[in-house]
Nucleic acid binder design. Structure first.
Length: 615
DNA sequence: GCCGTCACG
DNA sequence: ACGTACGTGACGGCA
C-alpha cells in the first residue's frame, strides 16, 4: 500500500520525494512545521501536477473546499487540509497551491477537472494551463459506459479501486470531521490515482487515435462548460410561482370530471390504477403491454380516446402534471441563493454518441411546444441591459448525413437550399414539390427522422400509424431516390462488423459489440446504433467545435456575452444589448464555419428578453 | 431501486 | 414468432 502524507504539517518537497521510500513515516505521524512557502518557489517546479478537491458536497456552485490532494510524481502524494475541524486555516492552505494551479505552464491532471475548477473559482483560485482529465479520457475510450467515477476507472484500467467515500465518512456528516490522519490517507490516494491513470489512459488514447479529439476538442471544452455552468441562467421566480398556481387550478378543475367518468376516486398518476379503471371498470380494449401490465402511454390513450372521453382528459391532465412537477414546481428549488440564477451541470462523459447531457436541472428538455411551452420558456430571462440570443442549426443531422454519405440527391437539396422535408415528400409520393400537402410533408419529415435513426418498417409504421408493409414501401421508395444513403447504411454496418466500432467526423469511437450477435433483434439494434452514432456524434463534434471557437473569440475580444446553454443543435447566449449586433454575427459565423462540409451549414438566430422570444 | 411515463433534440 | 425507431433526465408510484 502506498503511503501518503500531509502537506502543511511537514515539508512538502521532502514529503513528496521521500514518503514512498519511507514506509515508517505514517501519515498520522506528520511532524508539524511552519513551512508555508508556495509550492512553485521550491527548486524545479513540476511540469505537471495532479490534484483533487475534497468538498462538503457534490455541487461546485454551493459547496466548499475541505482539502486538496496533490501529486507531482507517481506514487507520492500529499494532502492539504483546508477546513478540517483541526488544521491550517483556509488562506494559508490555498495560498500554498494557488501559484501552482494558476501557473499556465504547469499541466493539470485530475479526474473531473471541471468540478475542481469551479469549486476553486469560488475561492478565488483560477486553474490555468493544459488539462489532462482522466474522466474524459476514460469516456472517450469507452463511451458506452456512463459511470466513469474515479473508482470505476481505477478498477477498469488499473485493476484496483479505492475505499468507498461513504466508508471513510462513516457516521460523520462531512469529510471535514474525518480525523486528519485518515483523511490524508483517503484523499491523497485520489491525486495519486489520477496521476497513475493518466499514464495508462494516454497510452490507450494514442492507440485508439483519440489524441486530437481529446486535446483539441474535449479538453478545451472543459473551460467552456465551466464558464457556462458558472454563468447560469436567470429565472423569473415569481412568474414560475404563478404558473404553478395556474396549472394546479386547471388540474383541480379536471379531477371531479375524471372521477365521475371513472366511477370512483383513484390516483390519476398511478399507471397501474389507471389501467384498472380503463381496462376493467370501463371495459376498454387494452393495446400494447409493458413488462408490468397494460400500457397507458400516450399512443394507447390516443387510440382509446376514439371510444371513450376519459382517456383524452387523462392525457391533458398528465401533460399539466408533468409541466408542474418537472418544471414550474422544481425549477425554483434550484435557483442558487447566491447568484439568483440556475446553474445546470453539463455532463461531458455520459452519452454513448458524444452529446452532452444536462442535469440538476436538465435544461436541455425545457418545454417548447404548445402554449405552456411558450409560457415556461418566458421564465428564462436575460439580466437587465441584456438579451437572450439563440442560434440553432437547421437540419444539422441530415446535412451531416449528406456529407458523410455523399448522396447526390441530399447534396443537391442542401446546396440549392431546398426544404428537405418537402423534397422527400415529393420523392416518396411521386409529385412535384408544389403539390406537396401538409400531411405529405409531415410523413416525409418522419421518414427523414427515421433514416437518421436507422429506419425499420416497424418503427416507421408505429410513428405514423400505418401498416409495416406500407412503411416498407415508403422506405424502399426513399432508398431508390437516395442510393447514396442506402450505400452509407450498408457500408457503415460492414465497417462496424469488421472493426467492431463506428466513428464520427472527429474520430470519436463507439464500440458496437452486438453487431455480430446471432440474435436478430440484438443485431438489428446494433445496426441502428452503427447508422445513427456517426450522424448524431458528428453533430455533437460540430457544435462542440463551434462552442470552443466562439468562446475563444468572445474572450479574445473582451466581450461580456456569455454562452449559457447548449441544447444539442442550439446555443443560447446572454448578451449585453450593445454587443448584440457584433456577437450575433460572430455566433452565426462560428457555428456555420465550425467545420467545412460538402454542404453548407445554416444557422438561424433570434433574440429577445426571454427564451421564448429569442427563438 | 426499478418501472412507466413524458419533457427535449 | 418476436417487437424497436436514435440520444438523454426527472418525476411519481410501487415493491
Amino acid at each position: 500500500m502506498k503511503q501518503y502524507s500531509l502537506f502543511g504539517e511537514q515539508d512538502p518537497v521532502k514529503d513528496m520525494k521521500e514518503t514512498a521510500a519511507a514506509p515508517d513515516n505514517q501519515p498520522g505521524d506528520a511532524v508539524p512545521h511552519d513551512d508555508k512557502r508556495p509550492l512553485s518557489s521550491y527548486p524545479a517546479p513540476p511540469s505537471e501536477i495532479s490534484f483533487d478537491i475534497e468538498a462538503t458536497g457534490p455541487d461546485p456552485m454551493s459547496d466548499t473546499i475541505v482539502g486538496i490532494s496533490l501529486c507531482r510524481e507517481m506514487g507520492k502524494a500529499c494532502y492539504v487540509p483546508v477546513r478540517h475541524t483541526q488544521g491550517p486555516n483556509l488562506e494559508s492552505a490555498l495560498e500554498i497551491v494557488r501559484p501552482v494551479l494558476e501557473d499556465e505552464a504547469i499541466k493539470k491532471i485530475g479526474h473531473n477537472l471541471k468540478y475542481d475548477m469551479l469549486i476553486l473559482r469560488r475561492e478565488g483560485v483560477e486553474v490555468r494551463g493544459t488539462l489532462y482529465d482522466t474522466m474524459v479520457a476514460a469516456y472517450l475510450l469507452n463511451p458506452n459506459r456512463s459511470d466513469h467515477s474515479l473508482e470505476n476507472t481505477g478498477l477498469e484500467h488499473l485493476q484496483y479501486g479505492k475505499r468507498p467515500f461513504r466508508e471513510v465518512l462513516g457516521k460523520r456528516s462531512s469529510f471535514a470531521d474525518v480525523p486528519i490522519a485518515e483523511a490524508v490517507n483517503y484523499a491523497a490516494e485520489d491525486a495519486a490515482l489520477a496521476m497513475e491513470l493518466k499514464g495508462i489512459l494516454f497510452e490507450r488514447l494514442r492507440e485508439d487515435d483519440l489524441e486530437d479529439l481529446y486535446f483539441q476538442t474535449e479538453m478545451p471544452l472543459i473551460y467552456v462548460l465551466a464558464d457556462m455552468e458558472e454563468a447560469g441562467v436567470k429565472i423569473n421566480r415569481a412568474r414560475l410561482g404563478e404558473l404553478s398556481k395556474e396549472l394546479q387550478s386547471e388540474m383541480s378543475a379536471m379531477e371531479s370530471g375524471i372521477y365521475d367518468l371513472a366511477g370512483e376516486r383513484f390516483n390519476i398518476n398511478s399507471p397501474k390504477q389507471l389501467a384498472g379503471i380503463l381496462f376493467e371498470n370501463l371495459g376498454l380494449k387494452p393495446g400494447k403491454k409493458t413488462k408490468t401490465g397494460f400500457s397507458t402511454g400516450v399512443d394507447v390513450l390516443e387510440e382509446l380516446a376514439k371510444a371513450h372521453e376519459l382517456p383524452l382528459i387523462i392525457l391533458n391532465y398528465r401533460t399539466l402534471n408533468k409541466l408542474k412537477t418537472t418544471y414550474t414546481d422544481s425549477l425554483p428549488k434550484l435557483i442558487n441563493p447566491k447568484t439568483g440564477r440556475i446553474h445546470t451541470s453539463f455532463n461531458q462523459t455520459v452519452t454513448a454518441t458524444g452529446r452532452l447531457s444536462s442535469s440538476e436541472p436538465n435544461l436541455q428538455n425545457i418545454p417548447v411546444r404548445g402554449e405552456w411551452g411558450t409560457k415556461i420558456r418566458e421564465v428564462f430571462i436575460a439580466e437587465e441591459g441584456n438579451v437572450l440570443l439563440s442560434a440553432d442549426y437547421s437540419q444539422v443531422e441530415l446535412r451531416i448525413l449528406a456529407h458523410i454519405s455523399g448522396d447526390a440527391g441530399l447534396l443537391e437539396a442542401f446546396r440549392s437550399d431546398m426544404d428537405v422535408h418537402t423534397g422527400t415528400a415529393a420523392e416518396i409520393f411521386g409529385v412535384s414539390p408544389k403539390e406537396v400537402t401538409t400531411d405529405m410533408r409531415r410523413i416525409a419529415k418522419t421518414v427523414n427522422f427515421g433514416v437518421v435513426y436507422g429506419i425499420s418498417p416497424y418503427g416507421l409504421s408505429e410513428a405514423i400509424s400505418i401498416t409495416p408493409k406500407e412503411a416498407g414501401q415508403y422506405i424502399d421508395c426513399y432508398f431508390e431516390k437516395h442510393p447514396g444513403v442506402k450505400a452509407y447504411m450498408d457500408n457503415i454496418i460492414m465497417f462496424a462488423r469488421e472493426k467492431g466500432y463506428v466513428a464520427t467526423l472527429l474520430g470519436r469511437k463507439r464500440r458496437i459489440p452486438e453487431i455480430r450477435n446471432p440474435n436478430t433483434n440484438a443485431r438489428l439494434q446494433a445496426e441502428r446504433f452503427a447508422i445513427n452514432t456517426p450522424i448524431q456524434g458528428s453533430a455533437a463534434d460540430l457544435i462542440k467545435t463551434a462552442m470552443i471557437n466562439l468562446a475563444g473569440r468572445l474572450r479574445a475580444q473582451g466581450m461580456k456575452s456569455r454562452i449559457v446553454l447548449q441544447i444539442h443543435d442550439e446555443l443560447l447566449l446572454e448578451t449585453p444589448s450593445h454587443e448584440l449586433k457584433e456577437v450575433g454575427v460572430m455566433l452565426k459565423h462560428e457555428m456555420e464555419n465550425a467545420m467545412q462540409l460538402s454542404v453548407p451549414l445554416r444557422v438561424d438566430i433570434g433574440w429577445g428578453p426571454n427564451w421564448a422570444e429569442a427563438h
